[in-house]
Amino acid sequence: MTTTPVKARLKTSAMIASFADPGQKTAPAPFGHALVKAAEENPAIVGLTADLGKYTDMHIFANAFPERFFQMGMAEQLLLGAAAGMAQTGLVPFASTYSVFAARRAYDFLALDAAEPNLNVNVVGGLPGLTTGYGPSHQATEDMAIFRGMPNLTIVDPCDSLDIEQAVPQLAASEGPTYLRLLRGNVPTVLDEYDYTFELGKAKVLRGGADVVFVSSGLMTMRALAAAKELAKHHVDVAVVHAPTIKPFDTETVLRELNTDRLAVTLENHSVVGGLFETVASAVVQSGVSKRVVPIALPDEFLQAGALPTLHDRYGLSVARIVEKVLGEL
């Protein structure tokens, strides 16, 4: 047997991959723990999943409240239809699956059973955007594009564990259906270093900057903050506006920040079609502001399988690629 020396390659296109940087502060299963905490205060909260409890951090809730957890099997249409039926009886269901299945497979059930009657059904979608290297079957690169067209639906794209912890009770308390782009497992904690609290429907300025303004959501806010620090080394002063609620969108805050002479860039873990960039673009056009906006987003393609760091770099979501893009635009 011979051993062929090969160049070290990043391996694993495993389903569950971490996007935390080495040594980064993280919190375990923030969604599961937040749901347990909310459920301790609100006995109407129940949890459902479609055979993905362990992979959406719903197992934390199931262990804490076994009598309030309902396993619906690998049946997403049933999952969302049944969640609507439960909401009709006065319960507040949180139903988890992967984002691809919620958005592509069970859309009609969320639309007609929960959104049309405006029921308090909370969908929790794992593996949003490019958070797995498993390939297009599990990469929900267009989930926000699909869901943004659904009337009554609130869409939240959280950045980190703090966002998730603070969002869960607000989603439970808000009327109508919601969709949370879940970050699961050991989720980075980033926003605690800023003067920030999550408020449903609000965008927040995390840091000011004279040259560039980033408008970002989801884990790309984490990258935006890191890129801003890197760009400072190049004497580029970057402001970061975090807009975790995609719908309803905080047009007022975002337009106030965009309507300046700074380079405007949106950053999202989603296809360039139909997500944060187009949300911002439509707000800009409708307001009459004349402003060019540069998108940093996934391409309008089915993405490749591979290791997550490789893919983030390939498709432009890595800090290095963001820095490169911004310097090229200036």
Partner: peptide, 17 residues
């Protein structure tokens, strides 16, 4: 094909309460 999935949730919800 929506009624029965909703009915499952309704029946579960009523029984749970």
């Amino acid at each position: 094909g929506h009624g029965l999935p909703i009915a499952i949730g309704t029946a579960l919800g009523l029984r749970h309460q």
